[in-house]
Design a protein around this nucleic acid. Structure first.
Length: 866
RNA sequence: GGGCGAGUGGUGAAAUUGGUAUACACAAGGGACUUAAAAUCCCUCGGCGCAAGCCAUACCGGUUCGAGUCCGGUCUCGCCCACCA
């Protein structure tokens, strides 16, 4: 056995052992409970970043822990391999996206393997492989048959940099989620998936997911956005024809307060009115040019213009004018709203701006309405009672809505409606590096689905995009084909699918990645749902909502027996680092990598300044932020692994912060992790030098009993912490065990000491093995515990070791700590009370007053109330 | 504007149902070993105070024998959504 800890050699040997024994190959067997541990698969961008290391270490700890706890474990890995960065890299380097992607996968796979993750690599998949994406196409055709997938022309969000369409979810603050470019509106045909048909289930089923973080569920519920309301119409006559202007409202109880109607600039009525009104046409054009969804839209000035068209109030018959308003959204409800300035803040400001009438019809606790400034209570529907509303007077919100909806229904002018904010998911992308949409356009037959026997529609892999649109358009060999129906020349669809399609079902395919004849098989029903899903919070809405939808759609096609794909969700925190920069008077900010900066501290350990090592001159601190290229504050995991080894990197990641919290990078703390593992190795070495130990004696000397008690007490806590995924304190527990065992080692060489040492070390190594598997594997073998620590059972605390003959109670007088008291383990209430009252410190603070009450918390404390 | 979450030493953080606040580390300071350095080991380490002791979990109040934890209010920060009718 080596005296010095040598991570490189140990890790190479351990990985070779696992590889040769095919330790992580998962098999579907029924004699153990299954545990499917899934981490979000990476985009093969080139090399791993710290976020990946953290994500997959969390998954690996859970995987190895459950394996030792007796579960049949699956931990797969794959590649989210389609997407724009490959095209951008291709443009920059002239390399085809396919080659770039596959090269990256090869490199990153090696990196993952060097971290020693317990992955079943036989199930590896890449979404850019035809074996995978053919099933995207196959399922798309099934969804088309069921009407879940359909084609329509719609105003879409257009990313001018990526030259592609974005879903609403992919537009953040009016900018593309990937490029940050300001999104434009465009009208183009594309394929859509009717996720809205599942809106209700996607919302209500959130209640069946107790293992998901509340905030993720809140974000999804918010995104689905369910509203109960009334859809109704304002009748009118235009060019001699009877028409209806439909609106949606959640405040039908305020209907008698309507003083005008507002429509969106894109509304057909606005278009019609603008035909003979050039001023209005100009205003509409200006609105359409305006920002799509800017963050300050909410505070933007309310602008509008009358259309000159009057409609009839459906209940009072009164004439009200229709206005075009820049605050009305075409995409929600009917693109038109009834305006009740007295009880809606937006309508209120609009009415005041244009001098429109304001008519209060809701009474809230007799407060007096005034048109001066908007008051919160004007919109209070909880406490509002209808007034000035004829037959509805005196009704509360829900009674009035019911009565008004009934009256509207009787006239054939409306009904109650459930409305969702969620929109259907547009999946067409005008990009090359994605899954081809399996459709052929025939001049005679129209849009014809590619027959199943012709799948997959293979994407040519040798294209090099040049930035001038989709290169597939120039590929005659791809585009030109025969119509499957009539056989005449036809053109293939060149749009590809949104990459979120690829990632919506990959977790199913891991269960049956080798099946060449079906998308899924019975094995999916064995492994799914995933017992644990781990990934970044940034996927709280997009990926997780699409995946839930996709698996429900597959369930309804009879392909899987599955309501929800992910039973438990862990959203890991980001990895942060310090930011240092200089800002010259002229010119741009330069960011300096923290590794190149020396931080000075004063003698109290407080930071006193930072200088760039290269020139010794000061740099400014920009605080702490996510590791990113733009802030030049990234740390390359490869350097970390090469310098310290996988175990130290993994231990550092787990020890520094709980998994869900942000993790601040610290070189000094990495050094601390390294010191700890060196000490563990030394302890193992010293213990091995002492040779085989005898069995634990029945009676141990006090210091050894105390050390053994410490080990088992800490183990008990560690097991509890593992159960709640608080791995930082599990790492702390390992440190405490090491401290106790080093004490035993220093305490002398005896049979009893060696027995305690041997037992304690076997506990320590097993607790450590999910976090630092390589060193645990090697020491387990070197100390002769067995062939493979992974085959050992997870340690459980020995109740006998925890028993103490004497326990220490904390003494309190009036809730303040005043001393300690040692009493026999089985001391009765009376004996404790007598001992406490006789205690000098207690007597001193009681100052002769009688004890009103003595509270005894068994095994913990005694509080004397005076 | 709406929703969710968080504020504990110089730093990362701990404290399971209310029961010894600051575990475990990092940094810092002192010491041992060494020709020296690294490594390693030992000691100190919330604040004030000579001490007894007092004060400290963002701030103010409440409940309780006892509050970091529960309740009410305030402030600050972070994230998500946002003219959604």
């Amino acid at each position: 056995m080596q005296q010095k800890y040598n991570p490189q050699v140990i890790e190479r040997d351990a990985q070779k052992f696992w590889d040769e024994a095919q330790t992580f190959r998962a098999v579907e067997t029924g004699d153990k409970p299954k545990y499917y541990c899934l981490s979000m698969f990476p985009y093969p961008s080139g090399k791993l970043h710290m976020g990946h290391v953290r994500n997959y270490t969390i998954g690996d700890v859970l995987t190895r822990y459950h394996r030792m706890k007796g579960f049949n474990v699956l931990q797969p890995m794959g590649w989210d391999a389609f997407g724009l960065p490959a095209e951008n890299a291709a443009m920059a380097n002239g390399v085809p996206p396919a080659k770039w992607t596959w090269d990256n996968i090869a490199y990153m796979r090696k990196q993952l393997q060097s971290l020693g993750f317990a992955i079943d690599w036989s199930r590896e998949l890449a979404t850019c492989s035809p074996d995978y994406y053919r099933w995207n196409q196959w399922l798309f055709l099934r969804l088309l048959e069921k009407g879940i997938a359909y084609k329509k022309t719609q105003v879409v969000n257009w990313d001018p940099v990526d030259q592609t369409v974005l879903a609403n979810e992919q537009v953040i603050d009016g900018k593309g989620w990937r490029t940050g470019a300001t999104v434009e509106k465009r009208e183009i045909p594309g394929y859509y998936l009717a996720i809205t048909k599942y809106a209700d289930e996607l919302l209500s089923a959130l209640d069946t997911l107790p293992g998901w973080p509340e905030r993720v569920k809140a974000m999804q519920a918010n995104w689905i956005g369910k509203s109960y309301g009334v859809r109704f119409a304002f009748p009118y006559t235009l060019d001699g024809k009877a028409e209806k202007l439909w609106v949606f409202t959640t405040r039908a109880d305020t209907i008698m307060g309507v003083t005008f109607v507002a429509v969106a600039a894109e509304h057909p009525l606005a278009t019609q009115a603008a035909k003979y009104n050039t001023k209005l046409a100009g205003f509409i054009a200006q609105c359409k040019r305006g920002p799509v969804m800017e963050a300050d839209l909410a505070t933007m000035e309310k602008k509008g213009m009358p259309t000159g068209i009057f409609v009839e109030h459906p209940l009072s018959g009164e004439k009200v004018e229709v206005w075009v308003g820049n605050y009305v959204l075409m995409g929600y409800g009917e693109g038109a709203v009834m305006a009740v300035p007295a009880h809606d803040e937006r309508d209120f400001h609009f009415a005041k701006q244009y001098g429109l009438p304001i008519r209060p019809v809701i009474d809230v606790g007799g407060q007096t309405f005034s048109t001066g400034a908007w008051q919160e209570w004007y919109a209070d529907k909880e406490h509002g009672i209808c007034s000035n509303s004829g037959k509805y007077n005196g009704m509360n919100h829900s009674a009035a809505v019911d009565a008004i909806a009934a009256d509207l229904a009787a006239k054939g002018l409306g009904e109650k409606q459930l409305l969702y904010r969620l929109r259907d998911w547009g999946v067409s992308r005008q990009r090359y590096w994605g899954c081809p949409i399996p459709i052929i356009h025939c001049p005679d037959c129209g849009d014809v689905p590619v027959p199943d026997k012709d799948l997959p529609v293979v994407l040519p892999e040798d294209c090099v995009p040049d930035g001038s649109g989709n290169p597939l358009l120039k590929r005659a060999d791809f585009v030109n084909c025969a119509c499957p129906k009539c056989g005449k020349p036809a053109k293939r669809e060149t749009d590809t699918m949104d990459t979120f399609v690829d990632s919506s079902w990959y977790y199913l395919r891991y269960a049956c990645a080798d099946n060449a004849s079906a998308m899924v098989d019975e094995r999916v029903n064995y492994w799914l749902p995933a017992d644990q899903y781990i990934g970044g919070i940034e996927h709280a809405i997009l990926h997780l909502l699409y995946s839930r939808f996709w698996s429900k759609a597959m369930r309804d096609l009879g392909l899987v027996k599955l309501d929800e794909p992910f039973k438990n969700l862990l959203t890991q925190g980001m990895v942060l680092n310090e930011i240092f920069f200089r800002k010259p008077d002229t010119g741009r900010i330069t960011y300096y990598n923290p590794a190149d900066v020396d931080v000075a501290v004063d003698d109290k350990g407080n930071r006193s300044g930072a200088v760039l090592r290269a020139d010794g001159l000061p740099v400014e601190s920009g605080g702490i932020g996510t590791m990113s290229k733009s802030k030049n504050n990234g740390v390359d995991p490869q350097a970390l692994i090469e310098t310290y080894g996988a175990d130290i990197a993994r231990f550092y990641m787990m020890f520094t912060a709980p998994p869900e919290q942000t993790l601040e990078w610290s070189d000094a703390s990495v050094e601390g992790a390294s010191r700890f593992l060196r000490r563990v190795w030394t302890l193992g070495y010293e213990t091995a030098q002492r040779g085989a130990a005898t069995a634990l004696p029945a009676e141990l000397p006090a210091p050894l009993a105390a050390a053994r008690r410490e080990i088992h007490a800490v183990l008990k806590q560690a097991n509890y912490d593992l159960g709640r995924h608080q791995f930082n304190t599990v790492a702390s527990a390992a440190m405490k065990m090491l401290n106790a065992l080093e004490g035993v080692l220093k305490g002398g060489n005896s049979d009893a000491a060696n027995a305690v040492l041997r037992e304690g070390l076997s506990v320590l190594l097993r607790v450590l093995s999910p976090i630092t598997p390589h060193i645990a594997h090697q020491l387990w073998r070197d100390l002769g515990y067995g062939e493979d620590i992974l085959a050992a059972p997870w340690p459980e605390p020995d109740a006998a070791a925890l028993v103490e003959n004497e326990i220490e109670l904390v003494l309190q007088v009036g809730g303040k700590k005043r001393g300690d008291l040692r009493v026999p383990r089985d001391a009765g209430k009376a004996a404790i009370e007598a001992a406490v009252l006789a205690h000098p410190e207690v007597q001193k603070f009681m100052a002769g007053q009688p004890a009103k009450k003595i509270i005894i918390v068994p095994g913990r404390l005694v509080n004397v109330v005076i």
